Amino acid sequence: MPGTFSQIYIQIVFAVKNRDGLISPKWEKELYKYITGIVQNKNQKMIAINGTQDHIHILIGMKPSCCLSDLVREIKKASNSFIKEQKFTSFKFEWQEGFGAFSYNQSALTNLIEYINNQKIHHKKKNFKEEYLGFLRKFDVEYKDEYLFDWID
Score class of each variant (00 low, 15 high):
residue 38 I to G: 02
residue 41 N to K: 06
residue 42 K to I: 08
residue 42 K to L: 14
residue 45 K to H: 08
residue 46 M to A: 03
residue 47 I to D: 07
residue 47 I to P: 01
residue 48 A to S: 15
residue 49 I to R: 02
residue 49 I to S: 02
residue 49 I to N: 04
residue 51 G to L: 10
residue 51 G to T: 09
residue 51 G to M: 11
residue 52 T to Y: 09
residue 53 Q to V: 12
residue 54 D to E: 11
residue 56 I to W: 04
residue 56 I to Y: 01
residue 57 H to R: 08
residue 58 I to W: 00
residue 59 L to S: 01
residue 59 L to A: 06
residue 59 L to F: 05
residue 61 G to V: 10
residue 62 M to I: 12
residue 63 K to P: 09
residue 65 S to H: 13
residue 67 C to E: 13
residue 68 L to N: 05
residue 68 L to W: 08
residue 68 L to E: 06
residue 70 D to C: 12
residue 74 E to V: 12
residue 76 K to V: 15
residue 77 K to G: 10
residue 77 K to T: 13
residue 77 K to L: 15
residue 77 K to Q: 15
residue 77 K to N: 14
residue 78 A to L: 15
residue 78 A to G: 05
residue 79 S to Q: 08
residue 79 S to M: 06
residue 80 N to Y: 07
residue 81 S to R: 12
residue 81 S to M: 12
residue 82 F to I: 07
residue 84 K to G: 03
residue 85 E to Q: 14
residue 87 K to M: 11
residue 87 K to S: 14
residue 88 F to A: 08
residue 89 T to L: 07
residue 89 T to G: 02
residue 91 F to P: 00
residue 91 F to V: 05
residue 92 K to Q: 06
residue 92 K to S: 08
residue 93 F to Y: 11
residue 94 E to N: 04
residue 94 E to I: 02
residue 95 W to Q: 03
residue 98 G to W: 04
residue 102 F to W: 06
residue 104 Y to G: 03
residue 104 Y to N: 08
residue 104 Y to A: 09
residue 105 N to C: 14
residue 105 N to L: 14
residue 105 N to P: 09
residue 106 Q to P: 02
residue 106 Q to V: 14
residue 107 S to E: 12
residue 110 T to H: 10
residue 111 N to W: 00
residue 111 N to I: 02
residue 111 N to V: 01
residue 112 L to N: 01
residue 113 I to T: 11
residue 114 E to K: 14
residue 115 Y to H: 04
residue 115 Y to M: 01
residue 115 Y to L: 02
residue 115 Y to P: 01
residue 115 Y to N: 00
residue 116 I to T: 03
residue 116 I to Y: 03
residue 117 N to P: 10
residue 117 N to I: 12
residue 118 N to E: 13
residue 119 Q to M: 13
residue 119 Q to T: 09
residue 120 K to E: 13
residue 122 H to F: 10
residue 124 K to Q: 14
residue 125 K to N: 13
residue 126 K to V: 13
residue 126 K to P: 03
residue 127 N to T: 10
residue 128 F to A: 00
